[in-house]
Design a protein around this nucleic acid. Structure first.
Lengths: 235, 235
DNA sequence: CGTGTGATTGACGCCTGTCAACGTCTGTGG
DNA sequence: CCACAGACGTTGACAGGCGTCAATCACACG
């Protein structure tokens, strides 16, 4: 009957345990509801561009967004994925710098826009919220440090195995073990830092070794333990 | 006459423009002076270990400290260097996680220890201080993202050129252009993510190309512009 | 049906990691 | 004072992982 995408309610977001907004007061929640904007995006849409001065941050209500930097030669380096409950674009707002990444939609998404002034207001008046945000930033910093170490020390093969495990853990798999997230070969390459052809060849090898099954962009994890071992992933 | 190393005064640190403590109130400054500990460390000393739960953070008053993660095979990956005015160990305190790096002294150092409770107290009661700290964390996150992109996309040669430029910018050079910071070949390798032998060979090549001069650990930058071009460094 | 994007495969070769041997320097202990 | 150990630096040989280029195929879309 009504095919219009649903407009997200902040209260709903607040209930989400992982949401930073749970620390907001009632008044601040209504302020947020009033100030925030909300938009629907399709795969390929760009939320914000690297190098621009951001006017606010975004909260992902639905869908998946990739954040990437553009290196020399124009090659993308995917820095992270954001899904429901994640806040993106806060780094540049807080540090007062230009955006260091571009945010692009991978899976049709709904995002709420939070103006810088609103966000900064919350930070200045609500220390719990502020601390929560700080925790997120610091956690992300730890993840980045791990990423650096992995990319610097592991082989492409190991990193690819690792990323498959990560994607399963982060975005889940269906009842058959097929990864929920769907990425192009090039996107895989842009995560692990290699050439598209290398990804294709290595995925083929994983398939030959019966670690995974491939059907187009659908990747089914058959032997997670073997992949973990290969990728030096310890839980 | 008096060869004892000088004990740093917080007030002095506060004057330092880059210090986050400039946002503290008078009362908080005296609290900090009262609560803080201070120690002297020699090259090779470890400030804190990866995997431990930290009891506080440290402010570098003098010297240089390297922060590194230990990857598989025990190889170090240097994540960052900290020098006068930098605060280290705050990430795990704020995120409530275990330390994700080890901090080791590279150049004899003086550090002030700030207990977690003191730091958290400041954060909860002083939103300016809190914001300042958040800016530091977010800035560091941006640096990490750059690092990831570089290490994923650039060749070892490019990264080595880049790091030489970075070290000059960050730690300066004497009147002859010799880098102030002194690192072993292995440490260079652990920054750019390569083998020690590769660093040695590439530094030799840079020398042959007259980009640098080498005398033991002293590295003199001869042609910064060429190195910048090689490393794809744009100011 | 032409066009464009993404996936695949093969050929080729260089960059880089690994292994091994050796040189240099410093500090330590006999 | 010398021998020795240990850390660090250097060089050569060698293989193979991985990037690059090019051609082809599959598939969706206007």
């Amino acid at each position: 009957m009504n095919n219009k995408p649903e407009f997200p309610i902040c209260e709903e977001c607040k209930k989400n345990i992982s949401s930073i907004f749970k620390k907001l007061t009632i008044d601040q929640m209504s302020e947020l509801s009033f100030e925030k904007g909300c938009s629907f995006y399709k795969r390929g849409d760009i939320i914000y561009h690297e190098g621009n001065r951001p006017s606010g941050s975004y909260c992902v209500s639905k869908g998946i967004v990739k954040l990437f930097k553009t290196g020399v030669e124009g090659k993308e380096q995917i820095i992270k994925f954001a899904k429901k409950g994640d806040v993106i674009g806060y780094r540049s707002v807080l540090s007062g710098e230009l955006s260091c990444t571009t945010a692009k939609v991978i899976e049709d998404a709904t995002l709420c826009f939070i103006p810088s002034t609103t966000l900064m207001g919350f930070i200045k008046t609500n220390s719990d919220f502020s601390l929560e945000l700080m925790q997120i930033a610091c956690n992300e910093l730890g993840v980045a440090n791990n990423f650096i170490t992995g990319i610097a020390q592991k082989t492409v093969r190991e990193r690819l195995a690792e990323i498959l495990i990560y994607l399963k853990k982060e975005f889940g798999a269906d009842e058959n073990g097929v990864l929920q997230i769907s990425l192009t070969r090039e996107e895989y390459a842009n995560i692990v830092g290699t050439a598209t052809e290398s990804v294709i060849r290595l995925l083929s090898e994983f398939k030959d070794d019966k670690y995974i099954e491939i059907e187009g962009r659908k990747i089914k994890i058959l032997q997670e333990a073997k992949l973990k071992k290969l990728g030096n992933v310890f839980d």
